[in-house]
Design a binder for these strands. Structure first.
Length: 589
DNA sequence: GCTTTGCATGGCTGT
DNA sequence: CAGCCATGCAAAGCC
């Protein structure tokens, strides 16, 4: 039985607790063996053991072996994103994320068998834990660190083991099973990074698409885009220097080292259920900068959620997606949960109660007490709240995006991926600066003003978009299929499959520029395209396939209008008719 | 009587 | 079909 005052290992809890006494939440502190369980967050801890194992000083602090920043034992013991080195050192995530700054220790050289990080692009990266833990103690501690659910099912087995043998630990069979499952989960998550990283995107690696000669994609052999998404929030970006990454996606290739130990709690639910795309953070670089302010902090976008009516209602409970809650918030074993400090973009600190309800042998996670925050942000159903984490402090940040912002269109630049169906794994076009035109994208995206969103009937209160928009979006997706075509810069390899000549390309398809087709008085079909420089509309042959970017200089069919200085062929009224007709046509389709 | 809390239900979505 | 999650509802608490 311990009698010294200790601090809960959870960085977001860190309640100071005395063995045998009640913690500040009024829950009695359970004591057993050499460890205690914080009933705030459910984390098992034992200060002395942690201090020994991680060479913490008496106050439970330790310096990052890379940058010298002070790391609290809570960081090391919980999901606070500290990388453990084979040589016994620890480093903060910001160091582990900084190319060239890792691995190294201040006092000693890293072991050859230690950690390697391959970082091809620099910002987004993933770390992977080697499931070979060399010491028994570390093995146990790692379980504490790694498994958020562990607090649920295997509190005792989380204890350091060297001062109490197996007989004393009284591990029950089901706990052993839990231990096994944890270890398996450990291997599943970190031993096989492919399983945990969803790779999406346009740039990059092995991509091969096959088209038939009419440029319609008839078969997709292997289109393996490489925008990366890390459900564990591992992908991060440094605000400074600024990078060009589209909303919600990293354009970085990510290589995963299998030789790094990361103090990050794997959660079985996260293994089984990848984070749904609708929760992928779509925060923009600008928003990230806004959040980070002038600080040199790294903002890790975690997830976001469109507020439901009940979320935004007066009841003050925000239902959290289970996978997100388990992946990014501190592990909780008691339904009471724990208080969670979250800062908003203005720097104001909010205290919510992060808890869960048992639900059909599962859990339903909620943030309670959100009403003041929701009201402060003037949010309502349909708006989006975003959750991020500031590194290296591990501070949680809460931002928001008004639905009106989501739906707005500035100019014709398609700069809001959030407009697209949330389950669509589509690359962010703005990465390439693509502008899409009236005929290519839904009229709703071109319309300057819109009614505010409402629920689509009673069946799907989850998607808060105009029913008209939903039709338009569907139409747009169909059109998008036709917009994909091989880059004009690439030469195709003709392959014959079952007497059909197919064009094979080594690169994935690109977006073609949208256009408007009209029929002139003579009955001849013609095409109108908007210049990407001057936004003037030019007449083109109907059979011309527009590249992603097209300007007046490319107008080889009309030398008089092959310059942006040339006046519009259409007067404002004709242009208005053209756009309106295009809108009507799109709706009819 | 109103609000808060905790649980249950069932629609919906992803596998 | 499993399970997430939006929401309804009853019980408890509070004014």
């Amino acid at each position: 039985m311990m009698d010294q005052s200790v601090v809960c290992m959870n960085i977001l809890c860190q309640t100071e607790l005395a063995a045998g006494a009640d913690c500040i939440k009024g829950w009695s502190l359970r004591s057993g063996g050499f460890a205690n369980l914080c009933h705030n967050c459910g984390n098992a801890y034992e200060q002395q053991k942690f201090c020994e194992l991680f060479h913490l000083d008496d106050t439970g602090w330790r310096e990052c072996t890379s940058c010298g920043k002070r790391l609290h034992c809570g960081c090391i013991a919980s999901s606070a994103f500290v990388v453990l080195l084979d040589n016994g050192g620890v480093t903060c995530v910001s160091c582990s994320n900084s190319p060239g700054n890792y691995p190294k220790t201040r006092e000693e050289k890293p072991k050859e068998t230690g950690i390697t990080v391959e970082n091809k692009v620099g910002e987004a990266r993933a770390a992977c834990i080697d499931n070979h833990v060399k010491t028994g103690n570390l093995s146990k501690i790692d379980l504490t660190i790694l498994d958020g659910e562990a607090a649920d099912s295997s509190e005792k087995l989380l204890l350091p083991s060297d001062n109490h043998d197996a007989s004393k630990s009284q591990t029950k069979p089901h706990e052993k099973a839990a231990c096994s499952s944890i270890e398996n989960a450990h291997k599943d998550v970190y031993g096989s990074p492919v399983q945990t990283n969803l790779t999406i995107g346009l740039n990059g690696s092995p991509a091969k698409a096959v088209f038939n000669t009419s440029n319609k994609a008839v078969e997709e052999q292997e289109v393996k885009p490489t925008l990366s998404y890390f459900p564990q929030g591992i992908w991060s970006r440094h605000i400074l220097p600024k990078s060009i990454i589209p909303q919600g996606f990293s354009n970085a290739n990510v290589d995963v080292s299998s030789q790094i130990r990361v103090a990050r709690p794997p959660v079985e639910g996260r293994i089984k259920n990848q984070l749904l795309p609708r929760y992928w953070p779509r925060i923009t670089e600008q928003e990230l900068q806004q959040i980070s302010g002038d600080s040199n902090a790294t903002i890790v976008p975690l997830f976001e959620k469109v507020l439901s009516a009940s979320d935004a209602g007066r009841i003050g409970r925000l239902v959290l997606p289970k996978a997100c809650a388990e992946a990014y918030f501190p592990p909780i074993s008691q339904p009471e949960g724990l208080p969670l400090k979250i800062n908003d973009v203005k720097g104001k600190e909010w205290m919510f109660q992060f808890r869960f309800w048992p639900n059909n042998n599962s859990r339903m996670y909620v943030l309670e007490g959100v009403t003041p925050c929701i009201q402060s942000m003037q949010l309502q159903a349909g708006d989006t709240v975003t959750f991020s984490r500031m590194e290296p402090e591990g501070k949680l940040l809460m931002g928001f995006r008004k639905a009106s912002t989501n739906a707005s269109v500035q100019g014709s630049t398609y700069s809001h991926l959030s407009e697209l169906p949330q389950n669509a794994s589509w690359p962010a076009n703005e990465q390439h600066g693509i502008k899409l035109m009236a005929g290519a994208f839904p009229p709703s995206m071109l319309a300057p003003d819109k009614k505010r969103s409402r629920n689509i009937g009673s069946k799907s209160k989850r998607l808060l978009i105009e029913s008209q928009d939903s039709l338009e979006l569907m139409h747009t997706w169909e059109e998008l299929q036709d917009m994909l075509f091989p880059s004009p810069l690439l030469k195709a390899t003709i392959v014959t499959i079952e007497d059909n000549d197919l064009e094979e390309y080594e690169e994935p398809p690109v977006f073609g520029k949208g256009s408007i087709f009209t029929v002139c008085s003579s009955g001849e079909q013609e095409q109108w395209a908007e210049c990407d420089n001057c936004s003037k509309w030019r007449r083109l042959p109907a059979d011309f396939l527009l590249p992603p970017r097209w300007t007046c200089q490319d107008n080889v069919w009309d030398q008089h209008r092959a310059s942006c200085l040339a006046p519009d062929e259409l007067n404002p009224r004709e242009l208005e008719n053209l756009l309106r007709n295009a809108k009507v046509s799109a709706l009819l389709i």
